[in-house]
Nucleic acid binder design. Structure first.
Length: 423
RNA sequence: GGAGGGAUGCCUGAGUGGCCGAAAGGAACAGUUUGCUAAACUGUCGUACUGGCAACGGUACCGAGGGUUCGAAUCCCUCUCUCUCCGCCA
């Protein structure tokens, strides 16, 4: 959520930045400024009226105490006339505030100046490409066929238990999941991230804090009886740990990591692009989250990007890093790097991580602030990234590492799996 | 699921209609004292909106929303959360 005062004072810049996203409703900006203007006028009138009423009430109290009952009664009669006006103004103020809020949550974050204007994923900038595509034999299989061949992931069984998009991992497939989770958590801990274990269901306030609510309810599973939401990512509970918190400057940066299953309803497209592990309703992910000083957030974004790349390198994967263009940028993000791994068998790039700087967009919703050396409180910056999401990593490992002997487990993982081939 | 408590500032906790944005203690911060540590003493010590160049003001907030009243942390209603006990249970 952008700050009203910022919008008010930087109208042109806000419009210019929103255009980078190809934002469809620039008229919202003026509507916000006008509503805010109205709100402030009403508030000033109301404040003045309240000041008069307060001092009158004080006088009445003094008179009563001194036994001057009649004078008090006269004053009472006078103040009563202001009540209607007071009520009217406070209703107006409440309306203006509700309206302002409903407008301002519709504005996405402003892209950083390095973010290029663009509408579609094709316009994303390729920042770097690492490694070379795996060379596979002609009869290389896509991961869903490998999963069946080695009997390590059972999609049909998941359909029986729950539905499409809820796979059952079996034997070495299950062990590989556990190995990856531990591998990712250990690497994150080495980087100074503190491991957290958090609830998988969150309340509405948390959904609002990180920007899933309002409007994106449809993407989350909802436990209606208790009005709780299954988390779509660990970002939600981990970032909300700091909701309504004022940190000390020296506590920054805060670096947390968490493994959680993630739940996404995401009813959408069908076909090869969502086959197998490409898109699931439930999947496992290790997330890294940082809360940092505003001056440091872009430095930290680069650091987080390098860290995710290090993981991909250790797993021996051929990947590229994209800087998302305005149109492909998430609603709450100011700048995002996507990491994509090449799937030789599917002949396409698979997104395995997304690292974003939200600047103050989340912290303004969360009321996540810090008190600086000057004693002033200001909003912190939040960042997060997947490090990493498992399914497409598993898909890539299966597809790129298929050999005649079976699936070769990356060196760095053998310590965690206890086997070096799935055969 | 049943019964009963509770919600006040960073924490503990007082406050049953005006003198309360809120006692007291603790923590924290600054200073004085001090061989060091500790202690003692003094001061500072919530957030937001708003007016002002500033100094300094105004307003709101004692879980949330509504009501009574000239005036509400305090009285009334509704809701939410939380704790304890019983039951069930990994």
């Amino acid at each position: 959520m952008l700050q009203v005062s910022y919008i008010r004072e930087n109208r042109e810049k806000v419009l210019e930045r929103l255009s980078v996203r190809n934002f469809k409703q620039p008229e919202l900006v003026d509507e916000i400024i006008n509503t805010d203007e109205e709100r402030r006028q009403v508030q000033t009138s109301l404040d003045n009226l309240s000041a008069i009423a307060n001092s009158a009430a004080k006088q009445i109290g003094d008179l009563m105490r001194n036994g001057k009952k009649e004078e008090a009664e006269v004053l009472k009669g006078q103040t009563a006339t202001n009540k209607d006006q007071h009520k009217k103004l406070s209703d107006q103020l409440a309306d203006a505030e509700v309206k302002l809020h409903s407008l301002i949550v519709q504005l996405p974050n402003l892209p950083h100046h390095l973010v290029k204007t663009g509408c579609t994923p094709e316009e994303n900038e390729t920042v770097l490409v690492h490694g070379d595509p795996a060379v596979l034999s002609e009869n290389a299989l896509p991961h869903w066929e490998l999963a069946a061949k080695y009997d390590i992931i059972d999609f049909e069984l998941g359909v029986k238990i729950t539905g499409a998009g809820f796979p059952v991992y079996k034997g070495k497939g299950a062990k590989l999941q556990r190995a990856l989770i531990n591998f990712f958590l250990d690497r994150a801990t080495e980087q100074g991230y503190k491991e957290m274990q958090v609830p998988l269901l969150v309340n509405e306030a948390s959904g609002f804090g990180t920007g899933q609510l309002p409007d994106k309810e449809g993407q989350m599973y909802h436990a209606g009886v208790d009005n709780l939401f299954l988390i779509p990512t660990a970002e939600v509970p981990v970032t909300n740990l700091y909701r309504d918190v004022i940190l000390k400057e020296e506590e920054l940066p805060i670096k947390n990591t968490a493994y959680t299953p993630c739940f996404r309803r995401e009813a959408g497209s069908y076909g090869a692009h969502v086959r197998g592990l490409n898109r699931l309703h439930q999947f496992d992910k290790v997330e890294v989250v940082q809360v940092v000083h505003p001056d440091k957030s872009y430095e930290v974004l680069e650091e987080m990007s390098s860290y995710v790349q290090l993981l991909l390198q250790q797993l021996g994967l051929h990947y590229r890093v994209l800087r998302l263009c305005g149109g492909d940028l998430g609603f709450t993000s100011a700048m995002t790097y996507d990491m994509e791994v090449w799937s030789a068998a599917q002949q396409r790039w698979l997104e395995v991580s997304s690292v974003s700087n939200f600047e103050t967009y989340q912290s303004n919703r969360l009321k996540l602030r810090f008190k600086g050396s000057t004693g002033k409180t200001q909003l912190a910056h939040t960042l997060n990234g997947s490090a990493l999401a498992l399914p497409r990593i598993v898909a890539s490992i299966l597809e790129n590492n298929q050999t005649e002997k079976g699936i070769k487990i990356p060196e760095a993982l053998v310590h965690y799996t206890g086997f070096d081939y799935i055969s």
